[in-house]
Amino acid sequence: MTGPRFLDVLGRNPSAAVGLALICGFVALAVAAPLIAPYGPFEVAFGPDRSVPRLAPPSARNWFGTTNQGMDVFSQLVWGSRVALTVGLLSALGSVVVGTLIGLVSGYFGGWIDDVLMRLTDVAFGIPFLPFALVVIAMAEPSLGLVILLVIFFLWRTTARVIRAQTLSLKERPFVWAARAAGAGHWAILFRHIAPNVLPLSFLYVAVGVQTGVMLEAALSFLGFGDPHAQSWGIMLNAAFRAGAMRTAWWWVLPPGVALSLFVMAIFMVGRAYEEILNPRLRAV
């Protein structure tokens, strides 16, 4: 994929361009969070007279108002982008690495290795993810690390199947035969000749991974199974929901919900554009 081609695709997909801009915005927000957020993620935004501004509507002081505990919604929102990006990136990278490795090994070696690994993915596909994650978190302590692990556990299976199929077709190509004839070992063929060719496809699943990871963190947190020490958008929504803010404080509910939706949509649109670059046949449709 070359730069001009990428720009070309962006030009034809304004939604992808908007998505990319949004992602850049969220990254900037996350990186510069301490500079942007006036308060800490769990800091009470005391008023000038040391009073606690509970459920204050948006004002010049608190742009997006405050929560029932007098915390600044805007600050929480900004800090939340850090959690979203962390969860998204780590779970995406983790699941893509695991899925790609399993797919490569399964497809390349075939035989009983393939059988075992593919039965394993069958099992992974049979596990209802969200309920399973709820049970695991209920058993253990809720933590961000556990959430990320669970997302990885949930996502590797799709990547593994796709990469396996790709590997199966790649290993019959002449360049692999040539490498084998030249005396290359299995692992050399796998990682030097086949892996580079499946990587572009793997990257597509990074987008899927970020999207799913962020969504699942939000869902788990919203259900009260998130890490209480990481102020995420899902945690915000959960607090607002439990406090009945839907009835009383729209400014508390909308920002995290809108941020989550925009983030997820942005990733989705960029992922689609990338898919189009990968698979030019889609362009005609």
């Binding site: 939604s15 999207q211 969504m215 939000a218 869902a219 919203f222 929504l237 929901f241 839907m246 509910v253 919900g257 809108v258 989550l260 939706s261 997820v264 949509m265 989705f268 649109m269 689609r272």
Partner: peptide, 16 residues
């Protein structure tokens, strides 16, 4: 595409 990518639980909250 928009409806597909928006988290449906937020849509639920909004609707409510």
């Amino acid at each position: 595409l928009v409806l597909h990518s928006v988290p449906s639980f937020f849509v639920g909250i909004l609707a409510l």
